[in-house]
Simulated scan of single mutants.
Amino acid sequence: MSGQNESPYYFVPQPSRHPIMAATGLLISMASLASWVNGESWAPITFVVGLLWLLYTLWHWFGDSIGESEGGMYGKNVDLSYRWSMSWFIFSEVMFFAAFFGALFYAREIALHELGSLDYKLIWPDFTAVWPNNGPAALVSHFRSMTPWPLPTINTALLLSSGATLTVAHHALRENHRNKTIIWLAATVLLGLCFLFCQGYEYFHAYNELNLTLASGVYGSTFFLLTGFHGFHVFLGGTMLTVVLVRVIRGHFTAEHHFAFEGAAWYWHFVDVVWLGLYVVVYWL
């Protein structure tokens, strides 16, 4: 929010076309994705069309919100609503990752040991309950598991450093040092890009040198689901911070009123914490 935070009332916007347009884009893209998975030749084209339609809608929707904020239409009540909304959004993301961590825990600590128990020895006498595993029937081709060094450890250092640079940028904004804010926020975005580049190289290495793919049993599927969705969240958080950076350059925030910055920072720190859990559970244990 901008510094023009004087409205004592709760701002109610005019009827908007954006929700129905966003819903239409989501419907087209998700239906096309489902058809794509089932081998429909036209699905990739309509998926791209739906995704572009959704992005176009979000561009204008967020643009309208920024314009309303800069126009002084948002007061303390709207600010509070945004804070609660962002808090619940991050909570939903916590539950999202909790489901994947839960799946990994179940596979490693429950299903694997159950398959290795005496009850199953007559069916799979050679099976040993050791993680990672290619399954009791050995249907999955041989692969090597990921290790924490060097790329995962480098990525951990990159994300932790980005959290530090973002904190410095936030303090600089609160002290009204705009140039310092721009420099440290740009450094945060750059560190996020480096993380994504390293993760892309890690996937290339996994597929081509370790034979580790999404088809590599429960280990491969949980590894790529956890790290892949986290990478997507890094991309999403980096996009948020890039928008905030542009707004800082344009002078949209003041030392007192800058929730767009704070909301993006909350999200980025959440992404950092999730990665620490991933780094320990996926790469070390």
Rank of each mutant, 00 (worst) to 15 (best):
L225Y: 15
G200I: 03
V218M: 15
G220L: 09
N211M: 09
T227Q: 04
Y203R: 01
G217I: 09
G228R: 11
G200Y: 09
F223M: 10
C198P: 00
L225D: 12
L225W: 14
G220I: 04
N208D: 09
N208H: 14
T213I: 01
Y203V: 05
F224L: 10
C198V: 04
N208F: 11
N211G: 08
L212Y: 00
T227I: 10
L193S: 13
H230P: 06
V218E: 13
G200K: 03
N208P: 00
Y203L: 00
F204E: 13
T213Q: 07
H205N: 13
S221M: 15
F204T: 12
L212I: 02
Y203G: 00
F229D: 04
G228S: 12
Q199M: 05
H205E: 08
G220T: 04
L196Y: 11
N211D: 14
L225K: 09
C198M: 10
H205A: 02
F224P: 05
C198N: 10
S221V: 15
Y207L: 11
A215P: 01
L226P: 07
G228M: 11
V218P: 05
N211E: 11
G192M: 06
F223Q: 05
V218I: 15
F224E: 03
L214W: 15
H205P: 02
N208C: 04
Y207G: 01
C198S: 12
A206I: 00
E202K: 03
E209K: 14
L226A: 12
F223V: 09
G228E: 10
T222Q: 12
V218C: 06
G192V: 08
F229R: 07
T227K: 03
L193T: 13
E209G: 03
Q199G: 00
A206R: 00
H205M: 07
H230I: 05
F197Y: 14
Y207P: 01
G220M: 08
E209A: 13
H230G: 08
C194H: 02
T213M: 05
T213K: 08
A206M: 02
Y201C: 00
A206G: 06
L191A: 14
T213G: 02
L191K: 11
N211Y: 09
S221C: 12
G200C: 03
A215V: 04
L214T: 14
F229E: 02
L191W: 10
L225Q: 12
L191S: 12
F195D: 05
F195S: 05
H205C: 01
G217E: 10
Y219S: 03
A206V: 01
G228Q: 12
T222W: 07
H205K: 10
G228I: 11
A206D: 07
T213P: 02
N211A: 15
Q199N: 09
G200L: 08
T213F: 05
A215I: 03
L225P: 08
N211P: 07
L226D: 09
F195A: 07
F229H: 13
L212Q: 01
L191V: 12
A215R: 13
E202N: 07
H230L: 07
Y201L: 08
G217K: 11
L225A: 15
F197W: 11
C198Q: 04
F229L: 15
T222K: 02
N211S: 15
L212E: 00
Y219P: 03
G200E: 01
T222E: 09
F224H: 08
L214P: 07
T227Y: 03
G217W: 11
L225N: 14
F204S: 15
L193P: 03
